[in-house]
Design a protein around this nucleic acid. Structure first.
Lengths: 217, 217
DNA sequence: GATCCTCGATCGATCGATCGATTGGGCTGG
DNA sequence: CCAGCCCAATCGATCGATCGATCGAGGATC
């Protein structure tokens, strides 16, 4: 349960960056959260910004790895549900990490910001192609595919800000509800039970377990 | 065009808080943006946090004032389109101000955070009642009204982060597109032209002009 | 002369980061 | 077995820089 010091620092940083913000988090505050001297921090890490960069890179890569595992043979409707599932699942189970990625990218300097943006663009490209495929095949119908993509991603990312696993909504209900809303937004409404079955058949648990191994308890 | 010094400070603060973040914005940086000494700032304002608080309060009040002007006699479908219009319009025309409100509330201390949260809750309550009315009358059909409300607000707020008036999407197209997506998400899909006409008939320009007088050029 | 406005100087506090000193467990050569 | 050594790990002290904020000394305007 304890984990190495390096991992403790990482966890504390994710928590503090997510709740207070990167610039509002002091190096001493971080050290105190871990229970070590602020000097000792630098034995395990580089600069504070190195830490932020590592967090964002890891988070992005895991999400992209998971999304890349979705078979391109599936029809757009199913692929979109898969993307929504993975996005919502990751934001619900790792709310602080994803919040840091979504809100603190601007604290990175030029080079690293560019690297992060490149990963983000790659990820959003997966969404764009699914939506484009669906529009081409007549499964989806939207006024502007680009705006629809932005709206969908924004709405799914919001999960990190409010969802609590201790609430009355289960992770299964959450992901299904968002998948249903996403399809509806694309003028491709489906019955709730239908989507529930669709996601069951997709069976993304292996994908999730591969991309977030520490969550497979 | 110039405006008083106080207003220049306000504008510069909105810009810096939105782009760099509240904690990443220094008092000297703010003064430099205005073209005055950092000491002179304090002749026009209180603390840096006073400034942030004033910005958030003003922004919230204007949005609530506008939303309150929507007649409660209208049916849920029209009222929802009105809420979407005002929300998207304000986020598209005042992206920095709304971004500060959406992202920097956590930088307020206890008392002021509570006041801001109270206003936010009041505003979101307007959305909640419209959605509830629509669900009760059968106009809307969603699995979870609360989640739908959160998703809609999140998706509409995202406009502040990407929309550019110089792009190919007009403000009119933008608001109509979002209203259509919102209705679709609520299983109440309508034709694009229908929503366009609906918003034209609503004619929210007077509402907008009353809540954001400086935009009425 | 009184009021408004501005600025340089400066306050104490805190920032991120580095330094040298110390500790202690583990490895090596004999 | 043990003396000698190494090195990861930790900490107190401190670096220069910057933070938000204050003060009093001047102009400027009426």
């Amino acid at each position: 349960m304890a984990g190495g010091t390096e991992e403790q620092i990482r966890r504390a940083a994710v928590h503090l960056f997510a709740t207070r913000g990167f610039h509002a988090t002091g190096i001493r505050q971080l050290a105190e959260a871990v229970g070590i001297n602020s000097s000792t921090l630098y034995h395990y890490m580089g600069t504070k910004e190195d830490l932020l960069f590592a967090i964002t890179q890891d988070s992005f890569r895991r999400l992209i790895d998971a999304a890349d595992r979705l078979s391109p043979d599936l029809n757009p409707q199913v692929r979109l549900c898969g993307l929504v599932y993975l996005h919502v699942w990751s934001h619900a189970t790792h709310p602080e990490e994803t919040a840091v990625v979504d809100n603190e990218l601007r604290s990175l300097d030029g080079d690293r910001l560019a690297q992060a943006v490149e990963l983000r663009d790659r990820y959003e490209g997966l969404w764009a192609s699914v939506i484009a495929d669906g529009c081409a095949s007549g499964t989806f119908a939207v006024q502007d595919p680009r705006i629809a993509r932005i709206a969908l991603l924004q709405m799914c990312s919001g999960v990190a800000g409010w969802y609590s696993a201790s609430g009355k909504t289960s992770l299964r209900d959450l992901t299904t509800t968002y998948a249903q809303m996403a399809l509806s937004l694309l003028s491709c409404g489906r019955d709730y039970r239908t989507i529930e079955r669709l996601l069951d058949d997709l069976d993304l648990q292996p994908v999730v377990a591969a991309a977030w191994p520490e969550s497979a308890i």
